[in-house]
Amino acid sequence: MMKKIILYIIAFISIFSTSCVKEDEFDNTPEGNFEALWKIIDERYCFLDYKQQEYGLDWNAVHEKYKKRISSSMTSKALFEVLGDMLGELHDGHVNLYCSLGTSRYWKWFEDYPKNFNDSIQRNYLGTNYGISSGLKYKIFENNIGYIYVESFSNAIGSGNLSEVLNELSLCNGLIIDVRNNGGGDLTTAQDLAARFTNKKVLTSYICHKNGTGHKDFSSPIAIYIEPSNHIRWQKKVAVLTNRSSYSATNDFVNNMSFFPNVTIIGDKTGGGSGLPFSSELPNGWSVRFSSSPMFDANMNQIEFGISPDIKINMSAADILKGKDTIIESAFKYLVQ
């Protein structure tokens, strides 16, 4: 009887030990790290099919192209450069490779376009006597137009702070929300701000996620609504100022605001960045960030490459020489109509 029991235990352990749940492992060599990175993007990046349609991205062809640049004797610096160049093929500001050497990035989505924002000229408008509250800079201009500069959505905007700011600006004829050079941050912070500018629940976007390793393995999109805030809500006209550096959560904010009837988007197309980024890592410990969950506008249009403004205008060289911000001036003209 004892022998049978021991045999059963040994058999069970033998069977059990072959049921190990493990991930595919790659060697910590230049070749291994290259293959690991290529596989992470191949299985987890959410815009491969979309970008194939937009500009012919072929991730298999990218593998063949960059594999030739990998050698077992290459230095870490050389490997970082090759892997960074490979990730650059994705044309995505949410794709970065991080290591002690540096951070790889693709910034052409704003580098190749006019800046359309100048903080020295902004200082001409704000002066020295402006309000600062919960990361917001705000002022009432002499033409009774209110102005709020939202530099980032990385930190939460206190609801009490925002209510006080909107209350302070409540007698203004119109409001400028300037999100130029706002690189994004927290989605819920951006959505909480947008909620101050609608009186009813509005469908503004959709989100889905990858539910498998295939390029087409996505969940059904779920609708995202902006519900009116229970705190002070702005009721008059709003001009949202954008440039190519309005990215990520700011892109989502502009998308949400674009569906409200009293809001007009003025400036340049936003930089885009509609993929909610996730992180992973390579065998050598380098961290990689990549777009994981795509967001769409309320009509299921892609907004990865940006949202076009209602009024397209650049800061003119002549105005810059005069210390004037053409985009703010356009917003003034629109709001005082």
Binding site: L187, T188, K210, N211, G212, S219, I222, L276, F278
Partner: peptide, 18 residues
């Protein structure tokens, strides 16, 4: 969560499917 589903989608947007 599903393969690459964010906790934002589960808890903020209430998508508990699967």
């Amino acid at each position: 969560p599903e393969y690459q589903q964010s906790y934002y989608e589960i808890f903020t947007q209430g998508n508990w499917k699967h």
